[in-house]
């Protein structure tokens, strides 16, 4: 199963990378969202896979049966999901503001911070 998941994760990462290589901020944003999912799946697979039994201790037991899924990666992913959602929200609004303020979603045209034709620094003394 891990093999198949590895391939799936590869597809996730490849898609994310392709989208992020775009000039357009919106596509970069989509890429970031997919990247987050890829990372989560990677963490999930890193803890090895088990089918269907959630890590919840039954009422009549004190310990979790060993067939249950590995809870640690799940907890890590929960943390990571929340964080990546936060970043996604921030970036989304940033993109929106970028479009508003700079009038474009094309990163090639966003040259306010690093203008294109800057004059040489003074050469004298």
């Amino acid at each position: 199963m891990e093999t198949l998941f590895s391939l799936l994760i590869g597809v996730f990462f490849a898609s994310a990378v392709y989208l992020m290589l775009s000039k357009h901020t919106v596509r970069i944003l989509l890429g970031i969202a997919i990247l987050g999912n890829g990372v989560n799946l990677l963490l999930f697979t890193a803890g090895r896979l088990t089918r269907e039994i959630p890590p919840i201790i039954p009422f009549d037991s004190d310990v979790l049966p060993s067939a249950a899924a590995n809870p640690l990666p799940q907890a890590l992913i929960l943390t990571a999901i929340v964080i990546s959602f936060s970043f996604f929200a921030f970036l989304l609004v940033l993109t929106y503001r970028g479009y508003q303020e700079l009038g474009t979603d094309n990163t090639d045209e966003m040259r306010l911070a690093e203008p294109k034709d800057e004059s040489l620094p003074p050469l004298g003394y």
Binding site: E2, T3, F5, S6, L7, I9, G10, V11, F12, F13, A14, S15, V17, Y18, L21, G38, L42, T45, A46, R48
Partner: peptide
């Protein structure tokens, strides 16, 4: 070019994950 980079990255992650989960 972009596709090649993307596939290379994806492949790299896949291979590394396969190796580690083995």
């Amino acid at each position: 070019f972009d596709a090649a980079i993307s596939i290379a990255c994806g492949l790299g992650f896949t291979l590394l994950l396969m190796k580690t989960t083995q």
